[in-house]
Write a protein that binds this DNA or RNA. Structure first.
Lengths: 134, 134
DNA sequence: CCGTATCCCCTGCGATACTG
DNA sequence: CAGTATCGCAGGGGATACGG
């Protein structure tokens, strides 16, 4: 591993790749819930709320593929499937939770900035904050 | 603020919202570069590499709206526009960088998991991946 | 109960061309 | 130089219906 900070493009791509996994609509919500312990499909579905079974399946498949969760099938009737965070998944949860905490604390600031921006925006074209004059 | 951990849906929505900003294709790359100091439009465009002017504009607008960067126009000819991280932007960079570091360190593990999954996949998935066109 | 398959809309995003 | 406007495609993601 090179100690050089050449985050030009090469290295950042892979990082950006993982960041996008984290950033997609449901991943974080699902992983957060699984942080409390293993959970069944519909249990997860109910707790997350608003997620379709298609997207839950897709999300879980992605997480499984990336090695963040394990999928355990109990060949019973009715069938039962448990999802659980792997070691890697728990490790991921650390920086993700930190970011989540930051987000939670700063939501107000972001919303305020948005309202301010939207309020100054309506003319769209004349929205320039010039450096010197005006 | 309630001390209860009712991260059911209410709170997590806003968090997920910001997480998606962070997770979109270019935001992190742009913000990272701006972490080094203010930068001009094309300068940014060149360094990030592979981003279209449309997406750079869109990304920067979003970041500006959320209060993460400032946009300063110098009414000169040719025009010059500087983008710079705000205090909020710098603060965001902290947890984002932490997550980025984690991603950088664990890219190999994720890739390994992916290859393993893809290798073991055809047995459990009913439908095989058809050879893509080309 | 746990999925997969289909349809379909909507948006992200790239390519290109044009202004101030 | 720093955008905006328009087009077009590919993929995300919801609703629904069906299968093991």
């Amino acid at each position: 591993m090179k100690p050089r900070h050449l985050h030009r493009t090469e290295d950042c791509r892979a990082v950006s790749d993982i960041l996008q996994r984290v950033g997609d609509k449901w991943t974080v919500l699902v992983v957060s819930q699984l942080g409390s312990g293993p959970m069944r499909f519909n249990e997860l579905r109910h707790i997350v709320g608003g997620i379709s079974q298609k997207m839950l399946t897709t999300t879980l498949r992605g997480l499984e593929r990336d090695g963040f969760v394990t999928r355990t099938v109990f060949p019973t009737i009715p069938p039962r499937v448990d999802y659980e965070l792997t070691e890697l998944g728990h490790e991921l949860l650390v920086p993700v939770t930190a970011l989540g905490e930051w987000a939670r604390k700063n939501t107000a600031r972001v919303n305020e900035a948005r309202m301010k921006f939207d309020a100054a925006c309506p003319e769209r074209v004349t929205r320039q904050r010039v450096a010197s004059s005006e």
